[in-house]
């Protein structure tokens, strides 16, 4: 965990040349987000912000803004993956909240 954080800090502290995404990157980012959102949907746990980001990604894609499409799709996927994780944890954890 610390290692990841360190790597993250290092990466961010060095100014990095901006990399422009292309159409196929945007496509695959959106496909990844859709897949993650579907998994969350199967668990009955779509998050509103994930849906919103996915929608924004598709709109950006339509208007040819590949960078924005990748950024939004990535955010949508991360949110949806976290939703899936939340649902999986809650499969047993909810019982600890029950009034007894």
């Amino acid at each position: 965990m610390t290692r990841v954080a360190l790597a993250f800090m290092l990466l961010c502290s060095v100014p990095i040349a901006a990399h422009a995404a292309d159409k196929s990157e945007a496509e695959s980012a959106i496909a990844g987000a859709v897949k993650a959102e579907d998994a969350a949907g199967k668990l009955g746990n779509r998050w509103i912000p994930a849906e919103a980001s996915l929608k924004a990604a598709k709109a950006a894609f339509t208007s040819g803004s590949w960078d924005a499409a990748v950024a939004e799709a990535t955010r949508a996927r991360l949110l949806a993956e976290r939703a899936v994780e939340q649902s999986n944890e809650q499969k047993t954890a909810w019982r600890d909240a029950v009034i007894r």
């Binding site: 965990m1 990841v4 954080a5 790597a7 993250f8 990466l11 961010c12 990095i16 901006a18 990399h19 995404a21 960078d67 990748v70 950024a71 990535t74 955010r75 991360l78 993956e81 976290r82 994780e85 944890e89």
Partner: peptide
């Protein structure tokens, strides 16, 4: 799972950083 989430979060941030200004 937590590490993964943080890792993913990190990647997202890096990505955003890459993409951002």
């Amino acid at each position: 799972a937590v590490t993964r989430a943080i890792f993913h979060g990190g990647i997202a941030a890096v990505l955003l950083a890459l993409l951002g200004t």
